[in-house]
């Protein structure tokens, strides 16, 4: 199997695919860490699921599978979903988490219905539309990856430029408003960035598991650092690693859907972080407690001995 990997890695198309999954790993890791701290991971999940009907409708309208318009369709229905969530939770007694569940299932259900319709219809070449559900990185071609690269780079640069504003908006939104920052605009900008990061990733990871790509690298990164900047960078790195290994395992090992393998890799990184991170890791904490106990026991023994001499 080693040989297979070596041969395939030399292949130009494979390199494109790998580059694509690295980039999507970076952009979802970066935006995901802010979304996690803003407690918007669930919204991310809803957006990912809700992009499916957008993809299907665009396909039905165009009659062909061309990535750019499909992603625009995905972004529109994703944004529409966030709009619905906000409208429902502010104009009815339904709370936000319920609204998220509701919108997610309605949009995703609609997406599945449309997908069924697409496969029954006689429109164009519909092969590969199913790949959006669990992701198929191997389906990426050079032009797709260039598009993803552009989008991922743009997202990362915008986040870097707005780092200071996003930081105060996330930590203390009221204070941010008191500073005179246009918080409504910033919220919208961030949501657009998040939706874009999701849309960039769905081709390779799929709508069902995309949220895991936002959350898992971010949570893992949080274990290793107490600085927001470092957390964001680390989360991007973890995302990229997950993208690479997930793609390698799925494409060359089995040829199965990429999404699950990427997410499994990200989860593996999470378990490593959970156990071994300095300060916060379980094992580190456990060792510390063990040492403390030993010292306490030692002191107790000393004290007892001291007493018995008196």
């Amino acid at each position: 199997m080693d040989d297979v990997i070596k041969i395939s890695l030399a292949d130009a198309n494979t390199q494109w695919v790998l580059l694509g999954t690295i980039l999507l790993g970076i952009s979802s890791g970066v935006l995901g860490s802010i979304a996690l701290l803003r407690k918007q991971s669930l919204i991310g999940d809803a957006v990912a699921h809700a992009s499916l009907p957008g993809i299907c409708v665009t396909f039905l309208l165009l009659g062909e599978k061309s990535l750019f318009p499909l992603l625009i369709g995905a972004a529109i229905s994703g944004l529409l979903a966030t709009f619905c969530i906000q409208a429902i939770s502010s104009y009815s007694i339904i709370k936000e988490d319920t609204a998220i569940g509701l919108v997610l299932s309605v949009f995703f259900g609609l997406g599945i219905v449309l997908l069924t319709k697409v496969s029954q219809s006689s429109v164009g070449n519909k092969s590969g539309l199913n790949d959006f559900i669990f992701g198929q990185a191997a389906a990426l071609v050079g032009s797709d990856v260039k598009l993803m690269a552009g989008a991922a780079a743009l997202l990362t640069v915008i986040t870097w430029l707005l780092f200071k504003e996003l930081k105060v908006l996330t930590f203390d939104p009221e204070f941010a408003k008191g500073l005179g920052l246009p918080t409504k605009l910033l919220n919208f900008v961030f949501l657009t960035l998040l939706v874009s990061a999701i849309v960039v990733g769905i081709q390779a990871v799929g709508v069902i598991l995309m949220a895991a790509m936002l959350i898992t690298p971010a949570i893992s990164a949080r274990y290793w650092t107490d600085s927001l900047a470092r957390m964001i960078v680390l989360s991007g790195v973890f995302g990229a690693i997950s993208g690479v290994f997930g793609t390698i395992f799925s494409t060359f090992g089995t040829g199965l859907a990429t999404g699950p393998f990427i997410v499994v890799t990200a989860t593996f990184i999470f378990f490593i972080s959970l156990l071994f991170a300095p300060e916060r890791g379980l094992l580190t904490k456990w060792v510390k407690r063990l040492r403390l106990n030993k010292r306490l026991q030692h002191e107790l023994v000393l004290r007892k001995e001291g007493k018995s001499y008196q």
Binding site: L37, K167, T170, F171, D172, T225, D226, S227, L228, M231
Partner: peptide, 9 residues
């Protein structure tokens, strides 16, 4: 009013 577990000093 804020989450003090936010990664910052």
């Amino acid at each position: 009013s804020v989450d003090w577990d936010f990664p910052t000093n």
